[in-house]
Measured scan of single mutants.
Amino acid sequence: MQRVNMIMAESPGLITICLLGYLLSAECTVFLDHENANKILNRPKRYNSGKLEEFVQGNLERECMEEKCSFEEAREVFENTERTTEFWKQYVDGDQCESNPCLNGGSCKDDINSYECWCPFGFEGKNCELDVTCNIKNGRCEQFCKNSADNKVVCSCTEGYRLAENQKSCEPAVPFPCGRVSVSQTSKLTRAETVFPDVDYVNSTEAETILDNITQSTQSFNDFTRVVGGEDAKPGQFPWQVVLNGKVDAFCGGSIVNEKWIVTAAHCVETGVKITVVAGEHNIEETEHTEQKRNVIRIIPHHNYNAAINKYNHDIALLELDEPLVLNSYVTPICIADKEYTNIFLKFGSGYVSGWGRVFHKGRSALVLQYLRVPLVDRATCLRSTKFTIYNNMFCAGFHEGGRDSCQGDSGGPHVTEVEGTSFLTGIISWGEECAMKGKYGIYTKVSRYVNWIKEKTKLT
């Protein structure tokens, strides 16, 4: 034993070699072989497995989906700052455009905790909710729209109204504003409101030439003092309507412009014939205590009207009353817009006519005020429907199939267009061939041609 100890002390290297040989010859039971080890760690190889990531292109799944990435790591994937920024906006807080917040056709661009709407022409605001041009839906104005110097929408209202708090709607500024039905039992019968379409306001006024200088022999019209197929109006439903009495009662109609003036057809009036105007009328054979009678003290036909040349060209006249009318729910003026808007309103496509005229061709006159909704007829169809001249200051309205029309005794009465609950004068009943005849239409004086003249002559002093 002493000898062994001496050998170990003198030859430590020998001992180490012996131990190493023993270990190498022993069977290893701690580690699995290569094949079995792979069965336990069965993990798919990654895209760049075996390579240094710093030297390969980034992978979106590896960089940002398996674990949260930084902007720089995302930049490695896209290799483009702009594309990385677009991805980053949604990656950080989701897609803010998912709810489609942009209105009126706006395009949404996502941002971090926010979004941006790219608005089409005519709109602005956070969600493109603000109209900035009158060309689109009248700028959301209830009545009139004008573009300011910086191309912003400025709404306005006709006389007797003021802008509401929203700067879009119009509200009454006087007790009985024009064009409004205020009798409670008839307010439910107000005709369907007309909503502004998209309009090209630059070209809204037709490029028409008034044929002022045409000389033409007097034409022989049949029954051209021209509501057939209409309905009984309720008291106060058309408070701007008046009836004219002269040699015979209810020979023509008219509309209240203001307390002192009536507008009617020029062919209705004769110099030297006494005319009485009755406002607030409903049943011409009954006294309903809503009527107001006034005498006409002055007749002003349009300066281009000449019955000797043509009885229905420039067929418009103004009547001055001896005493002002007292405005109330049964006696209310009709609204008159400017030339541009009167023309736009007419193009809405349908209007209402009213009167006490004959209820059928050569038949009896109506006792109760009649009204009828009539569609506008395109000019080409209008011209083809008659052998008589249709001037540019006239328009056609009615039904091709016949059966409904204005008729004798309705002449001078109103053709009105309702705009968001307020009625505007767009025409004056003038003439036609018979009444409600198939293929024939009622012919009306186009008020847009005469609004400046009306307003100039009827100013209240």
Rank of each mutant, 00 (worst) to 15 (best):
F399G: 09
L376W: 05
A337R: 01
G432I: 04
N138E: 04
R404C: 13
S11N: 10
C170W: 00
K39H: 10
W356C: 03
I334M: 01
V368N: 07
K440G: 11
I309T: 07
G363N: 05
G412A: 13
N59Q: 13
F251N: 07
T271N: 14
N304S: 13
H303T: 09
K459C: 11
S217A: 09
N222S: 15
E270L: 15
V416Y: 12
R404I: 13
L376H: 06
G106S: 03
L321A: 01
T332E: 03
S406A: 09
Q2S: 07
D111M: 08
S169T: 11
R180A: 05
K455Q: 08
V181P: 13
F144L: 04
H314G: 04
C117V: 00
G229K: 15
R226Q: 14
H303E: 09
E208H: 14
R180Q: 07
R449G: 13
G402H: 06
A173S: 11
F87T: 15
W453D: 01
F78E: 15
V195W: 13
D249Y: 05
T225Q: 13
I256H: 00
M6E: 05
E434K: 14
G246S: 12
L19G: 02
I256T: 01
C28A: 11
E456K: 08
E288C: 04
C335E: 00
G13F: 14
E27A: 07
N310G: 07
N59F: 07
N306H: 10
R75C: 04
A250V: 10
G122N: 05
M65T: 10
N304T: 06
L376N: 04
Y391V: 05
C407S: 04
E61S: 09
I316T: 00
S255Q: 03
D223H: 11
V296D: 01
N313D: 07
Y450G: 01
V153I: 11
E86H: 14
P414G: 11
G272L: 05
E73C: 03
E35Q: 12
V154Y: 12
T190D: 08
R75P: 07
N166V: 01
V377E: 02
W118T: 02
K68Y: 09
Y91A: 15
M6T: 14
V273S: 09
Q167P: 03
N59G: 07
E456P: 02
F221P: 15
Q2A: 13
R294Q: 02
E285G: 06
E434S: 13
F251C: 05
E27Q: 14
P177Y: 01
W88N: 15
G432F: 04
P101H: 03
Q57P: 14
S11V: 13
I454F: 01
K137E: 11
S70I: 05
C145E: 02
V278N: 04
N80D: 13
V4E: 08
P101Y: 02
F251L: 09
E320M: 04
E401D: 13
Q408Y: 09
Y47A: 15
T287D: 14
V248E: 08
T389H: 13
H34D: 11
V331I: 08
K45S: 05
N393P: 02
V92F: 09
V154A: 14
K109A: 08
I214V: 08
I262M: 02
G349W: 05
D378G: 08
A207N: 13
P333Q: 03
R364I: 08
M437C: 08
P120S: 07
D198T: 09
Q2F: 09
L244P: 00
